[in-house]
């Protein structure tokens, strides 16, 4: 037996069924996570809604799929596919933003995936994850301020809102996704992905 795992693990840009289904199941799982979050934040969330910059503190939670999926699957389009599918799931469950969540999901996914694409899908370190989270937050909140809060002040609202969301994206979606991957590694669920090769064999 060879000393290391086959290089076929990493090779190829072709999506295996496993890659597709993994992204899709992650999107569905996050559909559940977002739904459950409503119960955790019950009572607090509506209050924050009236001052948008504050509600952006937890914006990063909605961006995790955009960063986590490329970290695990490492295929072109993983972030966009997963984040957009997660958005469509809220659409089926009756999202108040209608079809626009899909546009926004696509944008956020694009933001999250950009740094990995810029590195030609070869670098998946903390820096790229943090940038991805921040860019996803930027993309998402730019959509918000442009379409839902266009009349608000630039410095009193738009800038702090986008800024807080980028910070939240960098921390929760960026560092959070890295932490999730690190915690998942020893469980063996990543063994069939390139990222799983970073793990000590058991």
């Amino acid at each position: 037996m060879p000393a290391t795992d086959s290089t076929a693990l990493a090779a190829g840009s072709r999506w295996r069924t496993l890659d597709i289904v993994t992204c899709a199941v992650l999107a569905v799982a996050f559909g559940v996570v977002f739904w459950a979050w409503n119960f955790v934040w019950e009572g607090i969330d509506p209050l924050l809604n009236f001052y948008p910059p504050l509600s952006a503190i937890v914006y990063g939670l909605w961006l995790i799929p955009a960063v986590l999926a490329p970290l695990i699957v490492r295929k072109v389009g993983a972030g966009v596919f997963t984040e957009a599918l997660a958005a469509s799931i809220s659409l089926f469950l009756g999202s108040q933003w209608g079809i626009t969540v899909l546009y926004q999901g696509l944008l956020q996914g694009l933001g999250g995936e950009l740094p990995f694409a810029a590195g030609r899908y070869r670098h998946f370190g903390h820096l790229n994850a943090v940038i991805g989270g921040a860019l996803a937050g930027f993309a998402g909140t730019m959509w918000d301020v442009y379409y839902w809060y266009p009349d608000l002040g630039l410095w009193t609202f738009k800038v702090p809102y986008v800024g807080i969301a980028m910070l939240s994206g960098a921390l929760i979606a960026g560092l959070g996704s890295k932490a999730l991957v690190k915690a998942m590694l020893p469980t063996g669920v990543l063994d069939r992905f390139p990222v799983g090769r970073d793990r000590r064999r058991i």
Partner: peptide, 8 residues
């Protein structure tokens, strides 16, 4: 003989 990825 088969060894799963990630297994020794």
């Amino acid at each position: 003989t088969w060894r799963h990825a990630g297994r020794r």
